[in-house]
Amino acid sequence: MFDIIKQIVEKCRLAIEEATDTSILADIKVRFLGKNGEYTGILRGMKNLSPEERPSFGKFVNEGRAFIEQKIAEKEAQLKAEEQRKKLESETIDVTLDDDSAIGSIHPLTLVKDEIVNIFLGLGFEVKEGPEIETDMFNFQLLNVPKDHPARDMQDTFYLTDNILLRTHTSPMQARVMTTEKPPIRIICPGKVYRSDDDATHSPIFNQVEGLVIDKGVSLSHLKGCLDMFAKAMFGKETKTRFRPSYFPFTEPSVEVDVSCSMCGGKGCKLCKGTGWIEVLGAGVVNPDVLTNCGIDPEEYSGFAFGFGVDRMAMIKYGIPHIRLMYENDVRVLKQYK
């Protein structure tokens, strides 16, 4: 009997080994271990054994059965893995192919404006926006530029009427806020501005960001601190700033601010025309006359203001060679900025 069992187990093992798919294996399972299976039939032979033989025989049979079951399970796992492998292999695609979907783009001027604004939000500045069509009063007179003042030549102006114009800078927002709000004032004003020059390096429309801080005890050193912080955030940690004396009617002292060239790190390159510095903005201590014009006591409060060109910033940041490219809106250019 034991030999027969051994033979059946061996026969079964061979069959399992030869099985090539899970359905054959299922058949084998039925053939040997099913209700009427070969191996199951052996148990029926047990009734012919003596009571003494039965336990050891039973144990032997069970071991054989467990062995077969284990072999089937192993084989099944092996076959399933193989079948899945084949299935997956048959499903192989060319992953280097592309569907034609793409993403859109955000205009470089928006990207840079948002980046600038976000830096100043972190420094506690509030964004204020104002009209592009302005009165002569806010654009010039309150900012210390009376009618027919020579400083008007600095900004060629588009007029709509004798007293209404397209703002030539975002600075009128200084006056708008100072005449309506009490210090402390810490604002940033992005927006479009207009000047009637139109050549290869100028666009009659461009974008500025104006900043204004009015508080007790504000000095030129605070301006330097604020712009240092901005320059590092905008152009990299190693960036330095440099002040050069300049003139704006609404600030005194007035400065032009250069940042060390982000391209060459100050060694001199094409971008900075070999100087190592790039002029990025104009700034200064708010002229006390402007404070007085706007109803703020210059004995109690002082402040600083700055303004820079977003277009220029974008050109520096992205290496855009001509300002005109920003307004041509060629899709091939637009696509480059996300």
Binding site: F120, L121, G122, L123, G124, F125, E126, V127, P183, P184, R186, V213, D215, K216, G217, V218, S219, L220, S221, H222, K224, G225, C226, D228, M229, F243
Partner: peptide
Amino acid sequence: IESKPLDGLSQTQGK
């Protein structure tokens, strides 16, 4: 001109 932080000035909220 030294670089002074805005810390000493009044607290303002960026928005």
